[in-house]
């Protein structure tokens, strides 16, 4: 798919995000907006997904014979729900039920309500990388040469389990795993360097035995597509791959950008209108 087309999808996804969060007056727009370009690039360009003859995705839990994605920082569920919906995993109008009673679109992703596209609950941080490793190892046992992708937050790197997984992956040469850290430098209580400085995550993962790549313009679709290709090229050589993706929290909506303030706050009616004014409607609002 052309870069421009991907960018148009991303614009709609950003509209979906702010509308979803506004609709229930809760949720996490900041990180969702920042990771929009990555998730669009993955689901509409990079990942090999099982599809029916009319290009609709076919979801099964095992993900055998296709690439699979895990969202470890589950609080950015709005971006994942929008991308899954727009990709055809479930009806787009269902986005209106986000975080409401009896919805499949729970505040944090879950398998409990059988939402197609989701394979594990996430939200309690630090667990997704381990889960992705398990799936990657199952693929190896089955001779399935597809990739497993996993996105984590940078604040999430403060969880101890992440480093258990970081040690485990190179030891077992899980080289069909491509993980991402969303380096937006913000977490709930403030800038990550102030709350708990992760220091040089690239150097850390390298020291743990990972192949490390940087995408310094994590909201530039062309840079992401190029970076993803590069990451794929690094996979399959005995080492897991870590991509450090530098994004802007709240990217795409000027007053939400670059601050932890919009980590978990919903816009009011005026703010919603202001945000939507900056985002072109390209695929039709739900």
């Amino acid at each position: 798919m052309e870069i421009e087309q991907l960018e148009r999808i991303a614009s709609q996804v950003r509209r979906d995000i702010v509308r979803m969060v506004h609709g229930c007056q809760s949720g996490h727009p900041g990180g969702s907006l920042g990771c929009t370009d990555l998730l669009v690039a993955l689901y509409f360009h990079q990942m090999e997904l099982k599809e029916s003859d009319d290009s609709q995705p076919i979801f099964d839990m095992s993900g055998a014979g296709e690439d699979v994605f895990f969202l470890s920082n589950g609080h950015i569920s709005p971006v994942w729900y929008s991308v899954l919906g727009r990709r055809g995993y479930f009806p787009v109008p269902e986005m209106a039920t986000f975080r409401k009673l009896n919805s499949r679109l729970q505040g944090h992703p879950t398998t409990h309500e059988d939402l197609p596209g989701v394979r594990i609950a996430s939200g309690s941080l630090g667990q997704g990388l381990s889960v992705a490793l398990g799936v990657a190892m199952a693929k190896k046992l089955d001779g399935d040469d597809h990739f497993v992708y996993c996105l984590m937050g940078d604040g999430e790197q403060q969880e101890g389990q992440v480093w258990e997984a970081a040690t485990f992956a190179p030891h077992h040469q899980v080289d069909n795993l491509i993980a991402f850290i969303d380096l937006n430098g913000q977490q709930i209580d403030g800038p990550t360097v102030k709350v708990m400085n992760n220091r040089d995550l690239g150097a850390k993962y390298e020291a743990f035995g990972w192949e490390v790549l940087h995408i310094t313009h994590g909201n530039d679709m062309a840079a992401i597509v190029k970076g993803l290709q590069e990451a794929k090229g690094k996979a399959g050589h005995g080492k897991p791959v870590m991509v450090l993706l530098e994004t802007g929290m709240g990217y795409g909506v000027d007053f939400m950008m670059g601050s932890h303030k919009w980590h978990g706050v919903a816009p009011n009616d005026e703010q919603l209108a202001a945000a939507l004014g900056q985002l072109e409607e390209t695929m039709g609002d739900y």
Binding site: Q127, S130, L133, G134, L141, E164
Partner: peptide, 17 residues
């Protein structure tokens, strides 16, 4: 690394193991 072991197990189960 018990926490990672539980997560890896969940992943293996997703993969049909």
């Amino acid at each position: 690394s018990e926490a990672n072991m539980i997560g890896v197990s969940a992943g293996l189960a997703i993969g049909g193991k």
